[in-house]
Amino acid sequence: MGNDFSAIKGYIFDIQRYSINDGPGIRTTVFLKECPLRCLWCDNPESQEIRPELFYFKSLCVKCLRCIKVCPVGANKITNDSNIEIDRELCKVCGACVEACLDEARAISGRLISVEEVIEIVKKDALFYRNSGGGITLSGGEPCCQPLFAINLLEQSHQCGFHTTLDTTGYAPWEVFESIVRHADLVLYDIKHVDPQRHKELTGVDNKLILDNLKRIILQKIQVIVRVPLIPGLNDSDDNIRRLGEFVVDLDSRIEVDLLPYHPLGTSKYSRLGREYMLSGTVQFREEEVEKIQQRLKSYGLNVVIA
């Protein structure tokens, strides 16, 4: 304890205490910034870049124009229909407008924090972890984008006796991935699409590395839950579900598969960041449709859970 490594810093955008969907029990989830993927349905668009970003909550804004007065680069403007517009190109995310705003309509997402500081926060709920079988989860973003930070967080958590979970896309060079994964008690591993070409269209990267890394960690007997974000019309085709079932069964039929049906609830974040949401108008699955997919995957002998 108390070694030099705890001074290592990394960029995070949130620490969510009482997180109950990212591994067993009551957990604290640390969301690391930066991701090599650009999934069309991304729930956490503020996670994609390493740099901090400015959130603007239009519904809380009373248009007092303080932000316009304080901005050193003049990135805030008032439009003809008397709305406030942020020029994201000009904005340096200095935080002056966040300070000035009296209605908490602005916030900066992302900050640099040391391993030690994170562990201090994680420790607060130690008794809850013990009573519920919980612990710490690293999510993001892709935690493997900040390997040194991730490894030290997991290591320090283990030193405190906490169960560790890594929520990952699996998209990282094997050496890097392996060095992080071996500190995780459980890996939540996303498979977004089985077809390489389609995967590239949907997420911006090829899935070869992802599937290869998955095979390798399974060989190392690391506990894995495969998570599939189900997006209507994008990866719910019969063909993809069949190939997914075959692929996972081929690895190990005891692997649990969690289905995460699409929801549009991350959409607010896109407008807060002044970005466009690519999947607007996507209709959510009906319960029966998800159950049908669940049944189909179950027919391969897998344990399939709808999250």
Partner: peptide, 19 residues
Amino acid sequence: REAGFSAFSIILEKFVQEE
């Protein structure tokens, strides 16, 4: 509770609240 995380209801967009 949105989906695995919580948010203050009033800062969500109308259609998310509706949802």
